[in-house]
Structures are given as structure tokens and as C-alpha cells.
Amino acid sequence: MKARAPRSLTVLATAGLMYLHIPILFVFLYAFTTEDAAFTFPPPGLTMRWFGVAAQNDDIRQALGLSLMVAAVATTTALILGTLAAGAVWRTKFFGRDTLSLFIVLPIALPGIITGIALRSAISLTGVSFSFWTLVIGHATFCVAVAYNNVIARMRRLNPNLLEASADLGASGWQTFRYVLMPQLGSAIITGGMLAFALSFDEIIVTTFTAGNQQTLPIWIFSSLVRPRNRPVTNVVALLVIAITFVPIILSQRFAARTENQ
């Protein structure tokens, strides 16, 4: 049992946590406000009607579909690339190994705008036209780091004797991979994938620079914020984004916690 914390420390820590969490609660509240032009607090009345309006809006539906597609394809790509890279870096030394690790984390260590404008420059230079795939390339680039970090962390904790035991017992390389390695890595890959999905789904900066006239959900929200229109509907869409990113994050944490306990 740990010592009791000083009262003042607890107060300050609680204040910090409230600062992190209270603002988002107002997004929930405003999704139900009857006010349609301003951010009046307290809301003059509560209503469910904006949910219906949002569901009927074709722009929102298309943007939602595009965001989900981009996140799914980018996550899959990033998982493949990240797992391969982790496999190469794990227990092997080769020329340029540190450079590779640097390039993997660079897209999330540098501000998003650098990654965005760099990809934009390359697109302009090579004359590639903007499409769904330029979005996927942008998103997969920063998602690789998440996949890689999760998989390599699990590999480092893996007991190498397991692989040797498997080989000693006569398993082929494929069988060791399929029946020993994959069950160990599986949950790390899923965790990485869920986090990458959440990251991709609400990404706006890299998206802006790699989208032509495609509109993802975050781009739709951003443009409705810059030119205020559909305020109540924006509130509902904001709530939707929170809900959709929250699910994979929570699942991934439960998953990670369960494997820790094993």
C-alpha cells in the first residue's frame, strides 16, 4: 500500500484531469441544443432533431464512408509495413538499421504539416493526380509508426527460447511462424491496428495536403468551422467522430491489458 498523497497534490492533479476531460463533455451537450446559430450557454432547450438532419445529409454520409475506407485501407497497409519492418529489425543487425527506425518514427515526430507538405511537393513534382490513394499513402505513412511500435515492443518481450524449442521439436520455419510466433504477436498487431485506425479516422492535417477535392469527415468538420454553417449538424458530427474513435481505443486498451495479465 502506498503512502497517502498530500491534499494539495491531489487537488492539483484532479484539476489537471478536469482540464483534460471536461471540455469534451460540452460537445455532448451541444449536440442536443435547440439553438442553431450561436453557442449560447446554457442551451435554451434540448432536442434530438439534429441527429435526423445529420443522417439525411448526403455530404456527411459520403464523407463518413470515405473516412472509414481510408482508415481501413491505410491501417491494413501500415500493419503489413510495420510488422515487416519490426520483423527485420528484431534480433538482426544490418547496415542502416538505425536509419530505418528513424524513418519509421519521423512521420509522427515531425509536425503533421511537414509530412503533409512534403507529400504534396512529391505529388506536385511527379504529377500524380489526387485520389483516394494519395490519401491512403499519407495516412499509411504516419500509421506505420503505431503498428511498428506495438509489434516491436511485443517481440522484445518474447522469449527467444520458444522459437528454438519449436525448431528442436522439428517444426519448420513456417510452422514456427504460424503456431508459435503469430499467436504471440497477434494481439499486438490488433492493438496497433486499432490505434492506427483511430489516428487515421480523425486526422486532418496530412489529409488536407493529400486530398484533392475528396472530403473526409474531419475535412467536412473543418470547413464547416471555418465558414460557419450547419452549426447544430456540426455538433452531431463531432459527437459521431468521438464515438467512432473511442471504440477502437478502448478495445485496444482492454486487449493490451488482457495480454499483460496472461
Partner: peptide, 16 residues
């Protein structure tokens, strides 16, 4: 959780 989730929406919350 805030680190992974809804960057744009979290900014928007402050507009409110």
C-alpha cells in the same frame, strides 16, 4: 485517451 482521440473535435470543444 485524449492523445489518441479526435484532435479536431477536442479543438472544436473549446470553441463552445
Amino acid at each position: 485517451i485524449p492523445l489518441w482521440s479526435s484532435y479536431l473535435v477536442r479543438v472544436y470543444a473549446w470553441k463552445l
